[in-house]
């Protein structure tokens, strides 16, 4: 069955924002695995608790690239505390919905951000309890409470 993506998804897929690498990143997080067909890697630059820059690299389908693009937009310039509140539902909503089988991509985006922040905390020597879906890394398609959209 042909996948129906929203215009917003196609726009971010065609012209993704924040693609690239931050060489001197303060935090780097990577989730997913190539076997399942999706990997997201996020790079953060943090200044005084604020995410001043964010870049991503993604291997995956159109929705994986689009969710990476919009999720990085959503946390750029935000305090870490706000970025941690970003949920996959918010990412799905910002994209005007994702096909049900693609909701796991938004979970990956949320996880990638949390992984990058966890890495930042680790480098800063700050304790944290950022939990990730360590077993499946989003690969299993856990929707983590997200509403499935058509």
């Amino acid at each position: 069955m042909a996948m129906e993506y929203s215009e917003k998804v196609m726009e971010h897929f065609a012209h993704p924002h924040n693609v690239g690498v931050i060489e001197d990143a303060d935090g780097v997080g990577e989730v997913g695995n190539a076997k399942c067909g999706d990997i997201m890697k996020m790079f953060l630059k943090v200044d005084d608790g604020i995410i001043t820059d964010v870049k991503f690299q993604t291997f995956g389908c159109a929705s994986a690239i689009a969710t990476s693009s919009i999720a990085t937009d959503m946390i750029k310039g935000q305090p870490i505390s706000e970025a941690l509140k970003l949920t996959n539902q918010a990412v799905v909503e910002a994209l005007d919905g994702l096909p049900a089988v693609k909701v796991h991509c938004s979970v990956l985006a949320e996880q990638a951000i949390k992984a990058a922040i966890a890495d930042y905390y680790k480098r800063q020597g700050i304790d944290n309890d950022l939990s990730r879906c360590a077993d499946c890394e989003g690969c299993c398609g856990h929707d983590h409470g997200a509403e499935e959209e058509d």
Binding site: P16, V19, G20, V21, E30, A34, I39, M40, K41, F56, Q57, T58, F59, I65
Partner: peptide, 8 residues
């Protein structure tokens, strides 16, 4: 490829 961590 230029946006892929696998390629990188």
């Amino acid at each position: 490829r230029e946006m892929s961590p696998v390629w990188a």
